[in-house]
Computed example of a mutant assay.
Amino acid sequence: MADPARRLMMPEEFFAWQTAQDGLYELVDGVPVPHVKMMTGASAQHDRATVNIIATLHAPLRGSGCRPTT
């Protein structure tokens, strides 16, 4: 929930403000949100698919100098 005393930014104001920041931000409902907090966790289905792909690639890549990562 946004702080009621905080004034919300308009897109033009946010873009001007963003250029002076060290990190990346997203404007969400008028409030700048740091980039690191924008990504949500993977779904259980996505996680299972990732594990299956890594498990499938593990043995064929062994000794090749390559390895699967997430």
Rank of each mutant, 00 (worst) to 15 (best):
Q18L: 14
A44E: 09
A59R: 11
P11H: 09
M38R: 13
D29E: 15
V28C: 11
V31A: 01
T50V: 10
L24G: 13
Q18A: 14
A5H: 11
A16K: 13
P60C: 02
T56K: 10
T50H: 04
Q45G: 01
S43P: 01
R48L: 08
A59F: 03
L57H: 00
R62D: 12
S43F: 00
L27H: 03
E13G: 06
T50P: 00
A44V: 12
L61V: 02
A20L: 13
T56P: 00
A55W: 09
A49G: 05
F14D: 02
Y25S: 04
G63M: 06
D47S: 10
H58E: 13
V36K: 12
A49T: 06
R7E: 10
T19C: 13
N52Y: 06
Y25C: 03
I54S: 05
G23M: 12
Q21D: 03
Y25A: 06
M38K: 07
A44F: 04
Q18R: 10
V36R: 13
G41C: 03
H46N: 07
F14I: 01
A20M: 05
M39V: 11
D47N: 07
E13Q: 11
Q21S: 10
A55C: 08
V33I: 15
E26Q: 13
F14R: 10
S43L: 02
T50I: 12
T56E: 04
V51K: 06
K37L: 15
A55Q: 09
A49I: 12
V33C: 14
V31S: 03
D47L: 15
V33A: 11
P34D: 05
D22Q: 12
L57S: 00
A55Y: 08
L27Q: 05
